[in-house]
Simulated scan of single mutants.
Amino acid sequence: MHPSFRTPAWFYFVLAFGMAWIAWFFSLLGSRGILPLSPVAQLICLFVGSFGPFVGAFVAAYRDGGWPAVREFAGRSLRYRMGLIYFLAAMLLVPVAAGLSMAWLASHGGPPFAFAMPLSHLPLLYVELLLIGGSINEEFGWAYAIDRLQQRYNLLWAAVLLGVIWGCWHIPLFFIVGLTQSFMPFWAFLIFTVALRIAIVWGYASNRQSILIALLFHTASNVCFNLYTIVDRSPRHDERGFIGTALIMLAVSLLIALTARCYRAQSSIMTMETGAK
């Protein structure tokens, strides 16, 4: 069951994109020497902009139902009861996909397979990325967005559409000098965001709209970019590591889309409704 929405969906997306893109525009200009911004100021703009989805979701939730709606929405991040398969997928799916891609790359002319950081640093890194690395900044917003998109589309198509929206939300980052996205092919990034969003929505919808599981998926994904050298920043600029990760995630997401109960149930409902008309 979804709450009643009084706020137009476009209002949320304007806030989520507007706050991010305006702040990131200053970072973009600073990174290219057009605007005299220090690296610290550029980092602050990047950080502030990343909260666009978070701010948009809570403003929209308040407009929908006041503080009770805000409390209910925020409380979904504490829904820790989840099936073991979903927890393991949230923690391991992207790291395993990235590891397989890097192992393949090592056997096809890439660098030897190795971790890019000591494994003892992983727990602290995970906590840092969860709190300030993009997960909290974004996943509350994308949870609100998937609820809204389900008003017009079945769950799978809503997940695919949100994956595209999520990828496009990052577009300014591809033009900021030195950022990870600036070393990625956008088409592969879009495949990755669609595939990962299908997995995240599967976990979210199968566990009582738990935002916590979305946070775990997102954080594990971000960990991979520190655990492996998926994105090659060297002059060689070998993109195969990230492309391989995106394609493996795409294959996994197709399997989830075809077999997950939440997606099959929604498709069946839509088929029945169409046949009844």
Results as ranks from 00 to 15, higher is better:
Ala69Asp: 07
Leu227Arg: 03
Ala69Leu: 00
Val127Asn: 01
Met102Ser: 02
Tyr263Gly: 04
Phe54Tyr: 11
Phe192Lys: 05
Gln209His: 13
Phe189Glu: 00
Val94Tyr: 12
Leu131His: 03
Val223Gln: 11
Asp238Ser: 04
Arg76Pro: 12
Ile44Arg: 02
Ile191Cys: 09
Pro123Asn: 07
Leu254Thr: 08
Arg6Ile: 02
Arg6Ser: 11
Ala257Gln: 11
Met117Asn: 00
Ala159Gly: 13
Glu239Pro: 15
Ala57Leu: 00
Thr259Ala: 13
Leu84Ala: 13
Ser38Leu: 10
Leu93Arg: 02
His121Trp: 11
Thr245Tyr: 01
Ala57Tyr: 06
Trp157Tyr: 12
His218Ser: 06
Ile44Trp: 05
Gly109Lys: 04
Arg233His: 09
Pro68Ile: 05
Thr259Val: 12
Trp21Val: 09
Tyr126Thr: 09
Ile165Arg: 00
His121Ile: 12
Trp10His: 13
His121Phe: 14
Gly141Ala: 04
Ile176Tyr: 14
Val194Met: 06
Thr7Tyr: 00
Trp202Phe: 10
Trp166Cys: 10
Leu173Ala: 15
Ile191Val: 14
Glu239Cys: 12
Val223Met: 15
Gly18His: 03
Lys277Asp: 06
Trp24Lys: 07
Trp24Ala: 07
Gly241Ser: 01
Thr274Ala: 15
Thr274Ser: 13
Cys168Pro: 07
Phe183Pro: 05
Met91Asp: 01
Ala116Gly: 13
Trp142Glu: 05
Arg261Asn: 12
Ala114Trp: 00
Glu128Thr: 11
Trp202Arg: 08
Gln266Ala: 15
Leu215Pro: 03
Arg148Gly: 05
Lys277Asn: 09
Phe225Ile: 00
Phe192Ser: 12
Phe183Cys: 09
Leu35Cys: 00
Gly203Asp: 04
Leu130Glu: 06
Tyr263Trp: 01
His108Glu: 04
Pro123Gly: 04
Pro235Ser: 08
Pro95Thr: 11
Met1Asn: 14
Ile165Lys: 03
Glu72Gly: 15
Ala20Thr: 15
Ile85Pro: 11
Val14Glu: 00
His170Lys: 10
Leu227Ile: 09
His2Ala: 15
Val94Ile: 12
Met184His: 01
Phe51Asp: 06
Ala60Pro: 02
Ser253Thr: 08
Leu254Arg: 04
Leu129Asn: 13
Val177Gly: 08
Val231Tyr: 04
Val164Leu: 12
